[in-house]
């Protein structure tokens, strides 16, 4: 167990060399989010005039936009490029010479790879959003209880995201495949995670499906707890959905990886 924390630590240290890139990414995030907030403001004004009532209020939607920026680091795409490279050039052989479980070894790496993006890009962008004038910027969580539930939900989301990426990595250990299918799946996951549009603004008849599908747990469920569109008393449901898919992804990922490793061909001399 301890060794996987050590891997996490060394990978985090390594990733910090990209802190400047991540920091400049936070500017991009910020600008995008401001544009989104403006668009939502206009949209809500027209919708209200037309008597349309969505699943969220304007204030909740704006808050959702910023929480989403905070959680952006766990989008369900972007497998650790180093791992793909190791599979391609045969360096995976070196990893297999360690008395470790390759799944948890790479899981720790995948998780660590996200931390720098979280601190330098997402956290800075989110905190900066509190400086914007009221109605446009980030808001505090709707209640203390909501915030206290938000924290474990984010942890679950993080583990869920990493286990999904590990499943993708495991599938990718079939080195004959290209990146196309991965990219599409990632994009679909991004949409279903609520990373583009809060899931509660989708049509009513889709709501049950949207809540129970695996990607809701990556972004939308924690965000709902933060903005208060999921009551604290319902949090258990959200987290059960998260944990359920977490177990499924880990089991699938380990299975695919074990199968693939049996037949993996270590490239190169």
């Amino acid at each position: 167990m301890r060794v996987y924390f050590s891997i996490f630590r060394i990978k985090t240290a390594e990733s910090f060399q990209y802190r400047l890139a991540a920091l400049s990414g936070s500017v991009t995030s910020f600008v995008w989010a401001v544009i989104e907030v403006a668009a939502f403001t206009v949209f809500f004004q027209y919708a209200e005039n037309a008597g349309f009532a969505g699943g969220l209020t304007l204030a909740q939607t704006v808050s959702h936009v910023w929480v989403r920026e905070l959680l952006l680091f766990m989008q369900p795409y972007g497998i650790d490029g180093d791992l793909i490279e190791k599979l391609r050039n045969g360096d995976v052989g070196v990893e297999l010479c360690r008395p470790l479980d390759l799944y948890w070894h790479w899981y720790s790496r995948t998780a660590a790879g996200k931390i720098v993006v979280f601190i330098m890009r997402c956290l800075t962008c989110f905190l900066a959003a509190f400086l914007l004038p009221g109605g446009y910027g980030a808001s505090l969580p709707v209640s203390l209880a909501g915030f206290l539930l938000f924290l474990p939900a984010v942890l679950c989301a993080f583990l869920l995201c990493c286990s999904f990426l590990m499943l993708m990595t495991a599938v990718r250990t079939n080195i004959q495949w290209g990146d196309g299918p991965m990219y599409l799946l990632g994009l679909m996951g991004g949409v279903l995670s609520g990373g583009y549009l809060p899931l509660q603004l989708w049509p009513d008849f889709m709501q049950t499906f949207l809540l129970f599908q695996p990607f809701a747990g990556i972004c939308d469920i924690p965000a709902r707890l933060y903005i208060g569109s999921m009551q604290s008393s319902e949090a258990w449901l959200g987290m059960t959905v998260q944990l359920f898919w977490l177990v499924v992804f880990i089991a699938l990922g380990r299975m695919v990886m074990a199968r693939r490793l049996k037949s993996v061909i270590i490239q190169g001399g």
């Binding site: 060794v3 060394i10 240290a13 390594e14 060399q17 045969g90 052989g93 070196v94 190169g268």
Partner: peptide, 17 residues
């Protein structure tokens, strides 16, 4: 032709790992 050291961290970090 391959390395077992972590590329971007001090060698001693690879050793402690």
């Amino acid at each position: 032709q391959r390395s077992q050291l972590w590329w971007d961290v001090p060698v001693s970090d690879s050793f402690s790992l």
